[in-house]
Design a protein around this nucleic acid. Structure first.
Lengths: 343, 343
DNA sequence: ATGAAAGCGCTAACAG
DNA sequence: CTGTTAGCGCTTTCAT
C-alpha cells in the first residue's frame, strides 16, 4: 500500500521550499520572475512532493478550464463515422499541444416525435464554465448552433463553412471538397478518359453541391462534355449500384467520380456484376478515404483532418487570447489516395 | 448584442428569491429539505436568471469533477478504430445519463526510439483532480497501466479482462469473444457444414487465443474434426487471402470463421479469384461488424459496445459511491450480424 | 426549514 | 524578486 495521504498543495511546496505560496505559484506560471536558485529550490520541492496544481482551484481562479467541448453527432453514415474517429484523434492531439483537453458530450436522446434540441448540451456546459469553448462540426445547412452560440457569446470555431451566412463572425476551417473532386476528375482525365461520370447526392446538401461543382469545373476546364454523365441519388451502396448501371446503359462513361465511398462501392458492385474490372481502364474514385476504400483498394479523396484539427485549435487559441482574433476562414485542400481502382 | 454581463451566481439567485445562498444550494442539491413554496420561489429565480452552478467552484468544494478520462490509443487497425468510435459514442451517452462527461486525452507523441510512456497522460490528470476516474481500454497483455493506477489509488474500470492477473482488484467489463466465435461456428454448422476453417491471428494475443478457443470448442462439441482446418496469420487482407487459398488447396473447408473482418475480406478475395461465391453454401464470418462488413454484406460477430459502456459506467458509479463496490467482472455475449455471406 | 461562518487551492493585485 | 491580502463560487458543518 502506498501513501493514502492527500495530494500536496501549493502551501506544502512553499513550506518545504521555505518560500511563500505566491512564489511557488510564480515558479509554475511565471518562472522568469524568480531568481534561478530560488526556482531550483522550489522545483526540487515540487518534484519531491510530486506536486501537481489542483485544476479545480486554478479553474475557479482563472476562469479557464482548458477544456474544449465537442458534441458527438448522432452517428451518421459509414464514411462520416470513420472521418469523425480520425478527426477526434487529431483534435485531441492538437489540443494537447496547446495544453487543452477535449470534453465530449452528446445532445442527449431525441424523444420520439420531437425535434432534437439544436443547442442540446451546449448551453449548460458553457454557462457552468465547464468548457472554455466549443468545436462545432455539424454546420450543415441552416444549423442554428452557430447562431445561438454567437448570441450567447460562447467562443467557438467551426469545422465547416458557414454556407448560409457569408458574414458569419466566427472562425472556421473547412476542406475544399470541390478542389478534391476536381483533382480526382483530372486524375481520371490524365488516365486518358473523356466520358467521366459524376455520381452524386440528391440536391439539398451544400457539401454535395460543392463536390459536384468540382467535377463540373474540371470537366469544363478540360473541354469535356458533361451531358448525361451525372446521377443524383441517395447515399447508399444500392443506390450507387443502380445509378452506375443506368449510366453504363445510356452514356457509357469510362470513369466514375463519386461523392462518397459508399456510392463508389455501389459502382464497383455493378462493374463486377457485368464482368468489368475497375482500374486504369475503368477508374472509380470515392470520397473520404474510409476504411472501406482502404480495404477494397478504392482510390479516394482524403480530407486532411489532422491539418484541420491543428488549424481549428490554432483559431481557438487566437480566439481565447486577449489579443484580437486574426484568422477568419481557412480552406484546406484534400489529397487523393490513389489505389487499385485507378492505377 | 446580448448581455455581456457575467453569469449569475448563487448569491444573485439568493437575493432575487429573498433567501440565503445556502437555501439556494439546498434547492439544487437537496430539494427535499425545502418547503415546496420556498423551492418554487427559488426555482423561479433560477429560471429567471438562467442560473447554472459554476462547475469549477463546485468541483473545488466537492473534490469531484464529474469527468471520466479516456485515453485514445494510438490508432490501430481498421476494425479496432471502428469499434472505438462506436464505443466512445456509447460511453459518452452512458456517462451523460449519470451526469458525467468524458474527457479525452492521448499519451502524447512517442519519441523516435523511445518506448511510449505507459502512464502517459494518466498521472497528471488524476493528480490535478481533473478527472474523477478513468476508463482503461488498452488492457492488452502485461499492460502496466492497471498496475500503476491501482498503486496510485486512481479509480478506474477496464474494458477488457485482466488476463494476466486473475486476482486484479479493479472492476472490468469484457466481451466473450470465445462465445461469439462459437456462436458463429454453430451458425455455419447449422447451415450444414462440417469442414469449418478457423482463420486466426498469430499466437501471442490473448484476445486472439480466446476467439480461437470458441471455434475449437464449438467444433469439438459438434463432434467435428479440426485437423488441418486452421491458419494463424497477420491481421491483413492479404494474409487472409493467402491463408484462405492454402486452406482451400489442402483441406478444402466449406466454411470460414475469422478472427477479424479484415481476414474475412481476404477470404472473400480468394473466393472471388476462384469464381466461388460466399453464401450459405460457402459461408464466411468475420469479427467486429465493422463498416466493411456492413458494406460488403459480411456476416460478422458484433460486440455489444453499448452494453459494455453502460456496465462500465455503472461499475464506475459504484466505485465512486461511498458504499462498498459490488461488481467485479462482467462478461457480455456478442451477437451475430447475419448477412449475405452466410444466408 | 433556513441562516451564518468557514474554507476548498489557487492566482491577481499590490506592498515591501 | 518575494510576501501579504483578498476572493473566485460553491458546499459543509453548525446553529437557529
Amino acid at each position: 500500500m502506498e501513501n493514502p495521504r492527500p495530494p500536496a498543495t501549493l502551501a506544502d511546496v512553499a513550506e518545504r521550499a521555505g518560500v511563500s505560496r505566491q512564489t511557488v505559484s510564480n515558479a509554475i506560471n511565471n518562472p522568469d520572475l524568480l531568481r534561478p536558485d530560488t526556482l531550483a529550490r522550489v522545483q526540487q520541492a515540487i518534484d519531491g512532493l510530486g506536486y501537481t496544481p489542483n485544476q479545480a482551484a486554478r479553474h475557479l481562479r482563472t476562469r479557464s478550464s482548458r477544456l474544449v467541448g465537442l458534441r458527438l453527432t448522432p452517428a451518421q453514415e459509414f464514411t462520416a463515422n470513420m472521418a469523425m474517429d480520425r478527426f477526434v484523434r487529431a483534435l485531441v492531439e492538437a489540443a494537447r499541444e496547446v495544453g487543452y483537453h477535449v470534453l465530449l458530450f452528446s445532445g442527449g436522446p431525441v424523444e420520439e416525435g420531437e425535434l432534437p434540441d439544436p443547442l442540446g448540451g451546449y448551453d449548460d456546459l458553457f454557462r457552468s464554465t465547464a468548457v472554455d469553448a466549443f468545436v462545432v462540426t455539424d454546420t450543415y445547412l441552416g444549423n442554428p448552433v452557430a447562431v445561438e452560440l454567437t448570441r450567447r457569446r460562447a467562443p467557438f470555431v467551426a469545422f465547416g463553412r458557414p454556407w448560409d451566412d457569408p458574414v458569419a463572425s466566427h472562425p472556421w476551417v473547412d476542406v475544399d471538397g470541390a478542389a478534391g473532386v476536381a483533382a480526382a476528375t483530372e486524375h481520371v482525365r490524365d488516365l486518358g478518359h473523356e466520358r467521366i461520370a459524376w455520381l452524386g447526392w440528391e440536391p439539398g446538401s451544400r457539401i454535395g453541391e460543392d463536390r459536384r461543382a468540382g467535377w463540373h469545373r474540371a470537366m469544363v476546364a478540360a473541354g469535356l462534355s458533361t451531358a448525361g454523365l451525372e446521377a443524383a441519388v441517395a447515399d447508399t451502396v444500392d443506390a450507387g449500384r443502380q445509378a452506375a448501371a443506368r449510366l453504363l446503359d445510356t452514356t457509357a462513361p469510362t470513369g466514375f467520380v463519386c461523392a462518397s465511398d459508399t456510392l463508389a462501392v455501389g459502382v464497383l458492385h455493378t462493374l463486377r456484376e457485368r464482368g468489368l474490372h475497375a482500374g486504369p481502364g475503368l477508374p472509380v474514385v470515392g470520397f473520404d478515404d474510409s476504411q472501406v476504400a482502404q480495404v477494397m483498394g478504392l482510390t479516394s479523396v482524403r480530407q486532411p483532418l489532422e491539418e484541420v484539427a491543428v488549424e481549428l485549435i490554432g483559431a481557438l487559441a487566437d480566439l481565447l487570447a486577449p489579443t484580437e482574433p486574426t484568422t477568419h476562414g481557412i480552406l484546406l485542400a484534400p489529397t487523393l489516395a490513389i489505389r487499385q481502382t485507378s492505377v
